[in-house]
Design a binder for these strands. Structure first.
Length: 108
DNA sequence: AATGTGACGGACC
DNA sequence: TGGTCCGCCACAT
């Protein structure tokens, strides 16, 4: 057993735990991973990890409930993946967090 | 040890 | 609703 999982490993674990049909914000992922101020590291993780990690990356959106990817650079795919799991996303990439935000129970 | 990275967040106008 | 500014962070080079 590795002594201490790295922050990055915890971030990946958190993302994998986001349920289908729900979304989490970068900040929430960071919080669950142990550092609420490390939202940017969550971005870095998503960037540096290729498909081999099998992360449900499309379930991560920004704090305003918007798809962060730019049109032509993943935006359309993320929107489609979310819609396929019944998450409503408008043409602008907006999602109603009141309805779809994942609310994990605090633990540890 | 210093600098670069990046899909952020929140304050502000 | 949208744009700018700036602080933040773990990891790579």
């Amino acid at each position: 057993m590795p002594a201490e999982p790295t922050f990055t490993e915890r971030v990946k674990a958190v993302i994998k735990s986001i349920p289908r049909g729900r979304v989490a914000t970068y900040g929430l992922v960071a919080l669950q991973a142990g550092n609420h101020r490390a939202a940017r590291q969550v971005v870095w993780v998503l960037h540096s990890s290729s498909g081999s990690d099998r992360l449900p990356w499309h379930r991560v959106v920004n704090a305003r409930g918007r798809i962060a990817l730019a049109p032509g650079a993943g935006f359309e795919e993320q929107r489609e993946r979310l819609r396929r799991e019944r998450v409503e996303v408008d043409e602008q990439g907006r999602i109603d967090l009141e309805r779809y935000l994942w609310r994990p129970r605090a633990q540890r």
